[in-house]
Protein backbone atom coordinates (compact mmCIF):
# COMPACT_ATOMS: atom_id res chain seq x y z
CA UNK A 1 0.00 0.00 0.00
CA UNK A 2 1.39 3.36 -1.00
CA UNK A 3 1.15 6.36 1.32
CA UNK A 4 -0.06 9.39 -0.65
CA UNK A 5 2.27 12.39 -0.83
CA UNK A 6 -0.34 14.60 0.73
CA UNK A 7 0.02 12.64 3.99
CA UNK A 8 3.72 13.45 4.01
CA UNK A 9 2.93 17.08 3.37
CA UNK A 10 0.50 16.97 6.28
CA UNK A 11 3.20 15.54 8.54
CA UNK A 12 5.57 18.32 7.52
CA UNK A 13 2.91 20.92 8.25
CA UNK A 14 2.35 19.38 11.69
CA UNK A 15 6.09 19.55 12.32
CA UNK A 16 6.29 23.12 11.13
CA UNK A 17 3.28 24.02 13.26
CA UNK A 18 4.88 22.55 16.37
CA UNK A 19 8.11 24.35 15.54
CA UNK A 20 6.46 27.73 15.09
CA UNK A 21 4.41 27.14 18.23
CA UNK A 22 7.54 26.45 20.22
CA UNK A 23 9.22 29.56 18.85
CA UNK A 24 6.20 31.66 19.77
CA UNK A 25 5.98 30.13 23.25
CA UNK A 26 9.67 30.60 23.94
CA UNK A 27 9.46 34.16 22.69
CA UNK A 28 6.58 34.82 25.08
CA UNK A 29 8.61 33.40 27.95
CA UNK A 30 11.58 35.50 26.96
CA UNK A 31 9.47 38.65 26.73
CA UNK A 32 7.94 37.92 30.13
CA UNK A 33 11.43 37.54 31.56
CA UNK A 34 12.90 40.57 29.81
CA UNK A 35 10.17 42.95 28.71
CA UNK A 36 12.77 45.57 27.77
CA UNK A 37 14.15 43.28 25.03
CA UNK A 38 10.72 42.81 23.39
CA UNK A 39 11.69 44.36 20.04
CA UNK A 40 14.79 42.22 19.62
CA UNK A 41 12.99 39.03 20.66
CA UNK A 42 10.14 39.71 18.27
CA UNK A 43 12.54 40.20 15.38
CA UNK A 44 14.39 36.99 16.14
CA UNK A 45 11.09 35.17 16.58
CA UNK A 46 9.75 36.33 13.24
CA UNK A 47 12.93 35.37 11.43
CA UNK A 48 12.98 31.90 12.95
CA UNK A 49 9.27 31.41 12.27
CA UNK A 50 9.72 32.59 8.70
CA UNK A 51 12.51 30.08 8.12
CA UNK A 52 10.41 27.19 9.41
CA UNK A 53 7.47 28.39 7.41
CA UNK A 54 9.65 28.25 4.29
CA UNK A 55 10.30 24.54 4.92
CA UNK A 56 6.59 23.96 5.39
CA UNK A 57 5.79 25.60 2.09
CA UNK A 58 8.54 23.71 0.34
CA UNK A 59 6.88 20.47 1.46
CA UNK A 60 3.44 21.65 0.33
CA UNK A 61 4.71 22.55 -3.13
CA UNK A 62 6.60 19.31 -3.46
CA UNK A 63 3.24 17.53 -3.48
Amino acid sequence: MEIPAIVGAGLVVIGAGIGIGRIGGSAMDAIARQPEATAKIQTAMLIAAALIEGIGFAALFAV
Partner: peptide, 10 residues
Protein backbone atom coordinates in the same frame (compact mmCIF):
# COMPACT_ATOMS: atom_id res chain seq x y z
CA UNK B 1 13.98 30.84 -3.10
CA UNK B 2 12.38 30.74 0.33
CA UNK B 3 11.66 34.46 0.02
CA UNK B 4 9.87 33.81 -3.24
CA UNK B 5 7.88 30.83 -1.98
CA UNK B 6 6.96 32.43 1.32
CA UNK B 7 5.34 35.50 -0.14
CA UNK B 8 3.63 33.54 -2.91
CA UNK B 9 2.31 30.83 -0.61
CA UNK B 10 1.11 33.10 2.15
Amino acid sequence: FSLMIRLYAN
